[in-house]
Amino acid sequence: MTTRTAAQRHAEARVSHRARFADCPTNRLLDRIGEKWVALILKELADGPRRYGELARTIAGASQKMLTQTLRRLERDGLLTRTVTPAVPVRVDYALTPLGQSLMPVLQAMTRWAEQNMNQMDAAREEYDAHETQRR
């Protein structure tokens, strides 16, 4: 029987934890919806299909590149569809899929929670930071 050092056991535990974390459906979802423009895009599409230009105007802080990349990732995830209509200029519409629509109650619940509780979190952070400053 080989003996392992504490460092080896710790390294093995870290690898195991990372594997479990990467496979966790909740963490994978939070990673996706936590991306910078995702929640805004999904909320915009909750009201119905939108043309690319409408999304670009509404989500003005996103560059064209970032908006396009985010829309592609959401399409790949099956949360939205992209429909191209030949015209001059070409018309591109985005809409939530049934899977994307099923995510909306979760986002709405998170929004309600944030609106009700972020002031308390901000106050707790300020209190913690003041306490930490005094300890130093």
Rank of each mutant, 00 (worst) to 15 (best):
M1A: 12
M1Q: 08
T2C: 06
T3C: 05
R4Q: 15
R4N: 11
T5C: 10
A6C: 02
Q8M: 14
Q8F: 07
H10T: 13
A11Q: 15
E12P: 01
E12W: 06
E12L: 14
A13G: 07
A13P: 02
V15D: 14
V15Q: 15
R20S: 13
R20E: 14
A22H: 11
C24E: 15
T26I: 15
T26E: 12
N27E: 12
R28W: 05
L29T: 14
L29D: 10
L30D: 13
L30Q: 15
L30Y: 15
D31M: 09
D31F: 10
R32Q: 14
I33L: 14
G34L: 11
K36H: 15
V38N: 08
L40N: 07
K43Q: 08
L45V: 08
L45R: 01
L45A: 04
A46G: 03
D47F: 10
G48I: 14
P49R: 12
P49L: 05
R51W: 01
Y52M: 07
G53N: 12
G53A: 10
E54I: 05
E54N: 07
E54L: 05
A56F: 06
S63D: 13
S63Q: 09
Q64N: 13
K65G: 06
L67P: 01
T70C: 09
T70W: 01
R73F: 01
R73D: 02
R73P: 00
L74F: 02
E75F: 02
R76I: 05
R76F: 07
D77S: 10
G78W: 03
L79S: 01
L79W: 01
L79K: 00
L79E: 00
T81I: 06
T83A: 12
T85K: 10
P86S: 11
A87Y: 03
V88E: 11
V88L: 08
P89Y: 04
V90R: 12
V92C: 04
D93M: 05
D93A: 07
D93I: 00
P98N: 05
G100S: 09
Q101N: 09
S102T: 03
M110E: 04
T111G: 07
T111V: 08
T111Q: 15
W113V: 02
A114T: 10
A114D: 08
E115H: 12
N117I: 00
N117L: 01
N119S: 09
M121S: 03
A123W: 02
E126D: 13
E126S: 07
Y128R: 08
D129T: 02
A130E: 13
A130C: 04
H131M: 07
T133P: 00
R135Y: 02
R135F: 03
R136A: 12
